[in-house]
Computed example of a mutant assay.
Amino acid sequence: MMQTLALLLLQVAYVVGCGTPAVKPDTNRVVNGEDARPHSWPWQISLQVKHGSRFHHTCGGTLIGPRWVLTAGHCIWPGDVYRVVLGEHDMSKEEGTEQIRDVLRIIVHPNWDIDFVAAGNDLALLKLDKSPIMSDSVGVACLPEAGEIPTHGSPCYISGWGNLYTHGPMPDRLQQALLPVVEHSVCSRSDWWGINVKSTMICAGGDVVSGCNGDSGGPLNCLGQDGRWYVQGVTSFVSSRVCNEVKKPTVFTRISAFTEWLSDVMLRY
C-alpha cells in the first residue's frame, strides 16, 4: 500500500510539470513539415536499434514518466537491442543536451498483431534503466483523460525524424508538421480509411502533410485548454502508396483509449 501511494505521489509530481516546454514550439508557420525549434518538444525521443556495433534511429517515442517511454508496438521486434536518446535535436552532431538510456524492459500491448495492423493496439511501453535528468531539453508530456477525443479540426502537431517525403531522405534535425484532427465519422468513410480505422485510433492530416517512415511511434502533440501539451496519439500507419495522400490521413493509436492499460503497466513494473 505504501509503495503504491509513493508511486502515485511520484506520478502526481511529474504530471504537475508535464507538457510545459521551456522552449515554446513555433506554431505560427504552416508548411509541409519544417525544422522544429530546438528542444521545443522535450518529450520527443529517438528509439535506436543496434546493428552490428552501432545504433541507428528506427522510431520516435514520447517520455510520459520519469522512466517510461511510449512508442508503437510495430517498432519493436523480438531479439533486437534498443536504446533511447533524449534531448536530441540534430542527429548529425553532438549538442551536449543528449542523454542516452538503456531499455530495461519492453511491454508491447498484448493484443498488438503485426499481421493485423488495422486491429489497432499499436502500443508499447519501454522502461528505462534509470530516469533521465529533467532539463530544458528533456521533459514529460501530459497524458489525456480516459476517453478524451480531440475535436474535428483541432490543430495538433506530429514530430519526428521520419522521411521528409515518400522514399525521401531522413532529416538530421527534428521536424514538425501541423496535422488537423479528422473525426472518426469522416476518417472511416469508404473513400477515406473505411473499416481500417477503428474508434481506438485518431486520424490527423489527410491533405499534403503527413507522417512518414521513421515517424512511427512518435507523438501527436495537441495543446490542451490548460495551455499544456498532451500526447493524444502514437504514430501508427500511413498509406502504403505514398506518405502524403489526400483522404488518407496519418493514423495514430488514441492514447485515451488505453489509459487503464498504461496505468496498470506502470504500476506493475
Rank of each mutant, 00 (worst) to 15 (best):
M1Y: 09
M1E: 10
L5P: 00
L10N: 15
V15M: 14
C18V: 07
P25N: 02
R29S: 13
V30T: 14
D35W: 05
A36T: 09
H39F: 09
S40V: 01
W41S: 04
W41M: 03
W43C: 07
Q44G: 04
Q44L: 07
S46P: 14
Q48D: 08
Q48H: 11
H51E: 05
S53W: 07
R54C: 09
F55P: 01
C59T: 02
T62G: 11
T62R: 10
T62S: 15
I64P: 03
I64Q: 03
G65L: 01
G65E: 01
P66T: 12
W68T: 11
A72F: 00
H74K: 01
H74E: 00
C75A: 04
C75H: 03
G79F: 04
G79K: 05
V81C: 08
Y82H: 07
R83T: 09
R83L: 14
V85H: 12
M91C: 14
G96K: 11
T97G: 08
T97I: 08
Q99H: 10
D102K: 15
I106Q: 01
I106W: 03
I107D: 10
V108Y: 11
H109Y: 03
H109V: 04
F116W: 10
F116M: 09
A118S: 13
S131K: 15
S135E: 05
D136K: 13
S137W: 03
V138T: 07
A141L: 02
A141H: 04
I149K: 15
S154M: 12
S159K: 08
S159Y: 07
W161N: 05
G162H: 08
N163K: 14
L164F: 04
H167P: 00
P171E: 05
D172Q: 09
Q175T: 03
L178N: 11
L179N: 09
V186Y: 06
C187T: 06
C187F: 07
S188N: 09
S190G: 05
S190Y: 10
W192C: 11
W192H: 10
W193E: 02
I195F: 12
N196W: 03
K198Q: 11
T200A: 12
I202D: 00
C203E: 08
C203I: 10
C203H: 08
G205W: 05
V209C: 12
V209P: 01
S210R: 07
C212W: 06
C212F: 07
G214Q: 04
S216C: 09
P219K: 14
P219I: 10
L220Q: 03
L223V: 03
Q225H: 04
D226W: 00
G227A: 00
R228E: 12
G233R: 02
S236W: 05
S240W: 11
V246Q: 15
V246H: 15
K247D: 14
T250C: 00
F252D: 00
T253K: 11
A257V: 10
F258D: 02
D264L: 15
V265R: 13
M266H: 08
L267H: 11
L267S: 06
